[in-house]
């Protein structure tokens, strides 16, 4: 009984973790490079989800139309990211991060208001594309094909970002800017451009995640908020903008949450915060602290 439950906890936890990661990836990217925690990230995730839904409808015909809708949503939200950067964030590059936090919070409310105006307050639902719309049974665990798809998507996105960050020259420049923007600038790196590109990439990731995670839950104006909080926790546990740390933190949070719901159902939703508190005290600089921090 315990064994079969544990298998379920692991599969489900991994799936939740990857869902958190799809959202947190963009968040941690911007956090690492611009040192700002974007409170509006969940709102842009939500906009991406609505865009993808508007393209693909409730019953995607194929995997390709589903993925395509996600990509288009990602592109559009990336453009919104560019606009946000030009109108709001560039003006706040040099101010105390608390102000940026409040500005992005305001942006979040604004986006929710606008989305409500465009799409209304009704709920929508989207089903997984037919290729992954099967029920599977592993031992006594009932798992859907879509759950496995989310796990795979999370792994692929991680692999791509990690390769960019640690293998390609773009990533190396980004890490240089993250570590010391002044030094990078004197060495001839176009720092403002790198910052803008990071914002665009982060927003595009949020929009794409919105499309991919549509079949996971109801589409409503509040769809981003549940993911946002977990993503914050993951970014903080993982360490300042460290993509690998965030990835591991997401898996930990997902599995803890899943175990909490399975074994301590009467106190659901508490364990992740205890884990967070433990990590903050035990490893205040995150799982993979940035170089130079103590």
């Amino acid at each position: 009984m315990i064994v079969s439950k544990s298998i379920f906890v692991l599969i489900n936890g991994l799936a939740s973790g990857m869902a958190f990661f799809l959202v947190a990836a963009g968040l941690t990217w911007v956090f690492g490079i611009l040192k700002i925690l974007n409170m509006a990230h969940g709102a842009f995730f939500m906009i991406g989800a609505y865009l993808a839904f508007s393209i693909v409808g409730s019953n995607p015909e194929s995997m390709w139309s589903f993925l395509g809708a996600g990509l288009v949503a990602g592109l559009v939200v990336g453009v919104l990211g560019y606009l946000t950067d030009k109108i709001v964030l560039t003006r706040l590059r040099t101010v105390d991060y608390h102000y940026v936090l409040i500005a992005t919070f305001g942006l979040m409310l604004f986006c929710e208001g606008v989305a409500k105006w465009i799409w209304g307050i009704d709920y929508f639902s989207v089903m997984p594309p037919p290729q992954v719309d099967q029920a599977l049974k592993i031992g006594s665990s009932y798992v859907s094909g879509y759950t496995l798809f989310v796990i795979a998507a999370g792994l692929v996105v991680f692999a791509v970002i990690d390769t960019i960050m640690h293998r390609l020259w773009v990533g190396k420049i980004m890490r240089a800017v993250a570590n010391d923007p002044w030094m990078a600038g004197t060495l001839g790196v176009n720092v403002p451009a790198i910052l803008t590109i990071s914002v665009i990439a982060s927003f595009a990731l949020a929009g794409f995640a919105g499309g991919l995670l549509l079949p996971n839950q109801t589409l409503s104006i509040n769809v981003g908020s549940s993911f946002l909080l977990y993503s914050f926790l993951a970014v903080v546990i993982g360490g300042l903008g460290n993509i690998r740390g965030t990835f591991v933190a997401c898996i930990i949070l997902g599995v803890v949450e899943s175990a909490n719901a399975t074994f301590m159902a009467n106190f659901g939703g508490i364990a992740v915060y205890i884990v967070l508190a433990v990590f903050l005290v035990w490893k205040p600089n995150g799982l993979f602290p940035a170089q130079g921090s103590t």
Binding site: F8, N12, A15, S16, S141, Y142, T147, N216, Q217, T218, V223, S226, F227, E257, S258, A261, T262, A265, G268, G269
Partner: peptide, 10 residues
């Protein structure tokens, strides 16, 4: 107000 009910469904 959860968004994930997979545990309860299982």
């Amino acid at each position: 107000t959860a968004t994930d009910f997979k545990t309860q469904i299982n």
